[in-house]
Every structure is written in structure tokens, then in C-alpha cells.
Amino acid sequence: MIKFWTAALLASIFVILGALISGQAGIETLKGLTSFDLFQAVISSIAAALTISVMTFFGLPVSTSQAVVGAIIGIDIINSQLHLAGLSKVFICWFTTPVGGALITMILYKILAFVYNHLKIGLFGSDQLLRTCLIISGSYGAYVLGANNVANVTAVFVGAGTLSISGAALIGGLSIAFGNSYILKAGNGNHRQKVGIT
């Protein structure tokens, strides 16, 4: 459908753009949960990465946000400084996100199916439309991935005062972009099938 490097390049560009343009709010929210020094920030970051690595080893799909927030809570408990107000916001999101995702999907599916079935375009037109939409939705997905996940990668370091928000957004965006391309290229076929690259 789309060549590997084209997909990787598009994903990288939009991840970085997402991190730079819309990543700041997420960084500020996660930063609000922390009052770490640099050592604790590094520990929480490694702990989150280890958790995800173990889960990945067992083939379990896990949320990066949950691993990072879990690691932050761990340090907060050690520091005896739980930020309950910020945490409640995060917990509410964890419950509402899947429900919201399911609802939006069902509504969007019905609307788009209606529009698609009533479009006066032929087989080739609809094929071109689907391929264009695939690229647009993939790029949009990469954009929101960058916007939402950059906080997971860098917020603890912003909280520790070692990175500015915009610097964190840039470094986080570049890291995710590099990780995407490298892991997809080095990974097995299943990885690629999951992202629809043929």
C-alpha cells in the first residue's frame, strides 16, 4: 500500500510536529504530578521503560502512559508526596478514554459509511480516496501520538528542571520518531502488519 520508508518518514515528521505543536499540555499535566530531582527522574524513566519491556516480552500490549504514571506514583510514595488532584485527573482519563474511543468509533463509522456509500465515485476513485485517507489518518495518528506521548518520555525531566518544555517536546518528538523508524525496520513482520505497511 505504502512503502516502508515513506510511512516511516511521514510518521516521523508528524510525530515531531505533534510533539512540538500540541505536546506541551501533556508535559505540563505529568510535570504537575512530580517534584523530583534528576536522579529520581532517571529512575522513574528507567522503571517505566523496564515495565514496558517486560510486558512487551510477554506479548502484552501496555499503555506507556500507565507505566510512566505508575513509575511517578512509585517515586511519589517514596517521597511521601502523592499529588492526588493531578492523579485523579489522570485516572478519570484512563476510564473515559476507552469508552470515548469506542463511542467516537461507532458514530464515525456510521457517518463515514453513509457518506462513502452515497459517494458518486467509481471503483478507482474510491480506491484512491481510501489510500489518500489512509495516509491522512496515519499521519494524523502519528501527530496525536507525538502530542500525547511526548509527555511520557520527557515530563519527568521537565519536572526535575533539566529540560524546558519546548526542549522536552523537541527531544521527545525526535526520540519517538527515531524509535518508530528503527523498531519498525528492525522488528519482525508482525510489527509491520500491525501498522499496515506492506
Binding site: M1, L123, L130, L134
Partner: peptide
């Protein structure tokens, strides 16, 4: 040469 999405390719 992988023209069209796989579904349409198979149909045609």
C-alpha cells in the same frame, strides 16, 4: 507492481 489496495486488486 502493487497498484490499488489489496482488496480492490483481488477483486479486479
Amino acid at each position: 507492481g502493487k497498484v490499488l489496495i489489496p482488496d480492490s486488486r483481488e477483486d479486479i
